[in-house]
Design a protein around this nucleic acid. Sequence first.
DNA 1: AGGATGATGACCCATAAT
DNA 2: ATTATGGGTCATCATCCT
Length: 637
Amino acid sequence: MAKDSSSSGDDDIDWNTDDDLEVEKMILLKSSVKPRAVTPTSSSSPTETTPDLVQMGSSDQTFATLVEMGYSMDMIARAIKENGPNADASVIIETVLKYSSESEAGSSKSKAIDYFLAMGFDEEKVIKAIHEHGEDNMELIGNALISSAEEEERLPTVKEENLPVVKEGKLPEVKEENDIDWSDSDEEMNYCDLLFSDDEIDPDSPDKFRSLVKMGFSKLEASLALERCGDKVSVEELADFIWAAQLARSFDEFHADPEEKKPRHDAKKRRIDSRRKPSSSTAEEKVRLPNPMIGFGLPNEPGLITHRSLPATALRPPFFYYENVALAPKGVWETISRHLFDVEPEFVDSKYICAAARKRGYVHNLPINNRFQIQPPPKYTISDAFPLSKKWWPTWDKRTKLNCVVTVYGSAKLTKRIREALEPHIGEPPAHVRKYVIDQCRRWNLVWVGPNKTAPLEPDEMENLLGFPKNHTRGGGVSRTVRLKSLGNSFQVDTVAYHLSALKPLFPNGINVLSLFTGIGGAEVALHRLQIPMKVVVSVEISEVNRTILKDFWKQTEQKGLLIEYADVEEMTNDTIEDLMKKYGGFDLVIGGSPCNNLAGGNRVTRSGLDGDHSILFFEYCRILEVVRETTARMRR
DNA sequence: AGGATGATGACCCATAAT
DNA sequence: ATTATGGGTCATCATCCT
C-alpha cells in the first residue's frame, strides 16, 4: 500500500527544518493583508490596466483595508458611495463601522439578515431594506428586496456587476493567458489581480516602509501603520502595531459566531491575552469544532456565512481543497491548517446534507458565496433514504440519521443474534433488550429490513448515501469487502460538490484538476454532477481497484477530457508536475484527502497522528501543492 | 488464497452531575 | 469549576471459513 512512500517522505519537506525558520514562516503566514498598490502612480500606464484600475483613488486603499478587517464588500462599497469616492478614509471607516454596529445590534436583526442572505439577496440590500422598514417587519423587507431585484432585471448593466463573470476576453494579453478568475465581483477581481502581480518595492519609499516590507509585512500594512502611527516611531513599534492588528483581526474572524454575538470587552480581553506570547512557536491556536458542524453554512440551515478573509499567502492560484476526518487526535488540525497557509478549516458533518453522518474538516481557498447544492438533493432522513425499511422500523428506534459510513460492517451473525434477542417478545421488548439492540444498531450502523431483522448497509446503499451513482464501485471482480472499504474511505459527494459549486461560474470552459489520493473519485463525481467540464484530470491513487473504478466512471459518463492516472504520490516528482503543467496549461484545482488511517478514531492499533505511516502523506499533499503554486507563478510571468 | 468474522481501546467531545 | 458518564469513530489484526 502507501507504506512504500513513507520511507523517503521525511527529507524533502522544507518546513520542519529549524525553529528560527519556522517562526519566520509563521510570521509571514500570519501577515494576512494582501499586497496592493500603495501609490496611485503604480497604475499609471492605462494601456496595461483595465478601466477599473485607472479609476483607483484613495478610497481603494481604504477599501482594501476594510476588506482585510473582515467587513463585507457590499457594506464598504455602500459607505464609499455614500461619502463620495474622494472622501477621507476615516469618514468611510466610520460609516462602515456604523453599518456594522447596526447590523450587529440585536439578535433578532441579525437573524433577519441571515434569513434574507440565505435566500440569496445581497447583504448590502438586505441591510438597507431592514434599515428602511424596521427589523421586525419581515414581510415588508422581503417585498422590498424582491421588487428591487426585479428592478435590476430590467437594468442589465447593473445586474452584470453582481454576477461572477469570467472576463478573459476583456483583459489585455499581457496580464492573462490563463482563464483563472478569482473574482466574485468586479471589485474583488481588481483586488486579486493586483495581488498576483506587483511584487517589487518602490525604491523611493521611506526607509521604515522598506524595512517593514522586508520584514514580511505587506506594503499596505506598512503604509497603514506609518499613516496611523506617524513616521516618528521606531520600526519595532510599527511592527508591533501591525502584529497587534493582525492578531485582533484573526481573532475576530476566527470567532465570528452568527448565533451569538459576544460582548466587545470580552474580545478585547482575549486579544491582550493572545498578544502576550506572539512569537512562541508552541503557542498553537486551538481549533474548535463548531456546533452545529455546518462549516460556513449549508442549504436549509440558518447561519450562512458568505464572506471570509483568507490569509494573503492562501490567495494564490491554484485553488486547493484538502479533506480529512474532523475527529483527529489533538493538534492535528492545527498542524494541517498551519501547513496550508493558516487557512481556517471548515468542519462539516454531512448529516446536515444527507441521511448519514460524516464529520470532516476541509481546508480550502475557494470562494464561499454563491454556493449551491447539486440536484436532486440527497434523501435527508433514514426513512426517505430507505423507504422499504419504514415498515419494519420499531417505534422505539428513534434514529433519523445513520452514523458514519466506515470500512467495516456488521456480520450476518450479528443479525441473527439481534433476531434471537427480539423474537421471544411480543410487542415492545423490555428495556434491557431494547438497549442492547439499539446499541448494536448504532455501533454497526444497521437498518431494519424485516420483522426483527436488522442488516448492515449494502454497497449500493452506501453509494447512494455518499452521492455516487449506483454501481459506481461494482464490477471488475471486486469483492464486497474491498468495495465497502473503498466506499468507507470516500468523500460525501453532495457535501464536496456544495463547496466546489463556487467554481462553476469561474470555469465555464472547463477545469484542469490535480486529484491526489483520488480513491473512488469523489471529487471527479462531484465536478461531473456540478457539470463543470473536466479538461484534464491527473489522478494519483495507490489502489488499482480504485483506479479501475475511476477509469470506468470516466468511460461510462463519456468524459470529453483527459484522464491521466498515477499510482503513487512518490511518482509525482517536482519535474513530473512541472512537465504536466507545461503540457496541459497548469492546474486550476488541487484536490484530495490524505490517508486518515492514523487519525481515525476507529483505529485501535496505529492511531499515531499525522506522523503515522499513512497519514504522513499529508505532507506530500503540501509538497505537491507548493510545487504547483510555484510553477503557476512562474508560468504567469 | 482470499474473503468473512470477531476481538482488540483510545481519544475526543458533549452533556450531566457534583 | 471540576468530575462523571455516554456516545461515536474514512481501522487493524489474527483466525476461521470456503
